[in-house]
Amino acid sequence: MGPFPRSKNMEKFGQRKDAVDIVFQRTMLVFPLLVLLIVGGIFVQLLLSSWISIKEFGPAFLVTSTWDPVAEKFGALPFIFGTIVSSLVALLLAVPIGLGTAIYLAEYAPQWPRRIISSLVDLLAAIPSVIYGLWGIFVLVPVMRSHVQPFLGKYLGFLPFFQGPAYGIGMFSASVILAIMIIPFIISISREVILAVPHVYKEAAYAMGATRWEAICTIILSYGKAGILGGIILAMGRAIGETMAVTMAIGNNVKISASLFSPAYTLASVIANEFAEATSKLYLASLTHIGLVLFLVSIVVNILAWLLLWRINERQKIFQGR
């Protein structure tokens, strides 16, 4: 048979479709550009507003641990420390629980608990963070003070992280709240990733005599690695930027301490707490400077995440001979 005969009508149809495609493509291009513009704008604005502070303190701002509004001496180190430590501890707590729950939901749970737990988890993600903060103050902190921290101090007190008086309020409580807040993300994303592993590969593992657990460890997690890691990093991004709940539980104390029990401060919470009181120009600029640091930390974490995912993807591609 010869080439497929194209009727006049079809040609017209084809052209029209092309035109629509092009218009759609161009219009849609506007939105990514807009996003870039907004991100760039925020960066420039932050830079301008914190200019006095940048000029005054220079790069030393990042490694100075004084924060003295009266003497107008400002440094961001305690906040950077607080942000990073609280996020990491939160991840440390949330990843095993989140991943475990996701594996349970995807591989073990029967139909109805799976559905109920999944909906509850999604609901958890929708709770406003100030509610988590309130819950933290009224429920978590007292329990921490009276039970958890004394317990940890007694049995793990030889570690510097678990020494000192149990205030309840402090780095550890904030981390626990953060962990609870990011667990739903880790669960949702990991669950989707695990469910997306092609069924034939799971079957192949089972057919080889793998137990469920062996199949999960050897096959499912190795297929889903990239996605799960992506979810974890997304969750970390959220933990870094989380403000309200952390501010309410962390104790807001400008201090770097090895102990997780002691009150601390984060980049986000110092801005939220002190913005209204920042009367002098330098004070305000320094707070904005903190904002700039937070902005950069978030972006660096996300870029690291992309690089990581991209590397895993590349390797996967080589694997698949693509």
């Binding site: 034939v200 590969y201 079957e203 593992a205 080889m208 005599g209």
Partner: peptide
């Protein structure tokens, strides 16, 4: 698990593990 070790299975689509 023991049964599946005695009864091997090969699928329609080849299923090499990413190893």
């Amino acid at each position: 698990v023991e049964l599946r070790r005695r009864v091997g299975m090969v699928f329609q689509k080849s299923t090499p593990f990413p190893k």
